[in-house]
């Protein structure tokens, strides 16, 4: 039978193809197009090849932003994943307590990003902010608009407060999916709480945790809203992460060519990092052989 005989299937694929083309492929190709040209105006552009890429890769400010970004995302994962699991483990499994804690935990996820920024700016203000003035009251000088470390701590707190709930929800869902019989079997074996976690809960959560780690890595690597609202990347360049730097370059200086080249590099880094993460996570927990 000729496999081209029935072409109706193509009509079913075309809508998806169009949506992906408009939403992803065409914009991406536009960026690729910009990244190899020097643009002075709509009709005045020069082909420059890979010059912008070379420039971006040798930009020491970009290197600094990249290192800052890696450190930030690493810390985010180190804090949010264990914290999320811990909170999920302590949440009640059923009854009204379960519903209540789920709603409470999910609250930060429901708040728009600019509102979160405003909340934290006020919360951390050294003069009237609840936490800011409390820390200063303890005799520790704290001002996120002046000290780099303070700005870092604030952005980190915002990120952890905002996004740990996502990890909690995913870990909680993973825990709820474990049949009760596993815990019974462990009790009959006389296994300790740690063994139950290590050999039942953690392996059973592997799937959702893989997704949680990937999502949190990707999202935190692309962080923009929090430092933008808080200090716009300052003080100095201390919270200028990759996307802040990119926007400064593209919108602030309107250097479309270099910004496009940078975007492509940024995109490839995220893609590569996610792939490495994913491959690594697939291996973890399955290699426990004799």
């Amino acid at each position: 039978m000729n496999k081209w005989e029935d072409n109706k299937a193509w009509f079913l694929v075309i809508p998806v193809f169009l949506i992906v083309a408009v939403s992803a492929i065409i914009p991406l190709m536009t960026v690729v197009n910009y990244s190899i040209q020097d643009i002075f105006g709509p009709d005045n552009r020069i082909f420059v090849g890979i010059e912008w890429y070379q420039e971006a890769l040798s930009d020491h400010r970009l290197h600094a932003a990249f290192q800052r970004q890696l450190l930030f995302s690493g810390l985010v994962l180190l804090i949010e994943i264990p914290l999320g699991i811990l909170i999920a483990l302590t949440m009640p499994k059923r009854g009204w307590g379960a519903s209540l804690s789920l709603v409470l935990v999910a609250l930060p996820l429901l708040i728009p990003w600019n509102v979160i920024g405003t909340i934290w700016i006020i919360f951390m203000r050294p003069d009237i902010g609840l936490l800011g003035s409390a820390i200063n009251g303890l005799g520790i000088p704290f001002d996120h608009t002046a000290a780099s470390l303070d700005a870092w701590v604030t952005v980190m707190l915002m990120e952890v407060w905002h996004w740990t709930p996502l990890v909690v929800l995913m870990a909680y869902a993973g825990l709820q999916a474990i049949p009760e019989a596993y815990f019974q079997a462990a009790r009959i074996d006389g296994a300790s709480a740690w063994s139950v976690f290590r050999y039942i809960q953690l392996p059973k959560m592997r799937g959702v945790l893989t997704i949680a780690i990937l999502l949190r890595f990707m999202d935190s690597f692309l962080i923009y809203a929090e430092p933008f609202v808080l200090t716009g990347g300052g003080p100095g360049n201390s919270t200028t992460f990759l996307s802040i730097y990119l926007v400064k370059q593209a919108v602030g200086q309107f250097d479309l060519g270099p910004a496009s080249a940078f975007s492509i590099i940024y995109f490839l880094i995220v893609l590569l990092a996610c792939w490495i993460f994913y491959q690594a996570l697939l291996k973890v927990g399955t290699g426990d052989k004799q």
Partner: peptide, 28 residues
């Protein structure tokens, strides 16, 4: 239950997911 001498097999197939068959059998 921890102090009793009991073993149980369930309707679901309950084994430690990250342990090999050998380690699973050896766990008790």
């Amino acid at each position: 239950v921890r102090k009793r001498d009991v073993a149980m097999v369930y309707q679901q197939f309950i084994n430690y997911p990250s342990m090999t068959v050998y380690k699973n059998i050896a766990s008790p």
